[in-house]
Amino acid sequence: MSVLQHLPPGRFIEAAGRGSRQTKHTVQVSFIVMLLMATMALFSANVNADVPNAVPPEGEYSGIHVEQPIEFPHDIHADVNEINCMYCHTYARRSKVAGIPPTSKCMGCHSIIATDKPRIQKLTEYWENKESPKWKKVHDVPDFVHFTHEKHIKRFVIDNEDLQVENVSEVCAFCHGEVKKMTVADKVKPLTMGFCQRCHQANDGPSDCWHCHK
């Protein structure tokens, strides 16, 4: 049984391609998953009902609002139109950083859709001037921290048989909050060491200093 069987056919082909080499590992993974589920049962108070096999980190943070060059509405994209987070943040499953999509990706839709809206006209202006909007970073961990999106997506999405890839935003929400209810993304989680560590301890993540500190 492949870990990626639950993926709908035709979606996330790259991710599925990577998964086909993992079949040998699957038995071990599902064993660990079962083991984790047993552990979860013990600490069921912490279990997030949406994402099985995962204890999300806890904590809230009222971060400062970062002004962006264009007030990007995450809610219209991710909530109303149900676009997957990883459609635009395509590097999240491939590299350390989730990445901000290039303007060409925006224009792929917005050369046709909603061209009469002022924000889209501003975007089109950037596109015609061959410039990128200078997006500001909201979720910034300190320079001495090594964090990879890739491994976290693998652990909680690709290797997680009980999570549909459509619901990836539930995993993203662990650290980024409910971005699909926001317009411009705000930092609503503390992203401190204790915040990371609580989740690492609950989900059997590495606790070695040099794993994350550089």
Binding site: R18, E150, K151, W210, H211, K214
Partner: peptide, 11 residues
């Protein structure tokens, strides 16, 4: 760290 991450991702 980079090499170990890559190896882990490729199982």
């Amino acid at each position: 760290r980079t090499v170990k991450d890559t190896a882990r991702m490729e199982d």
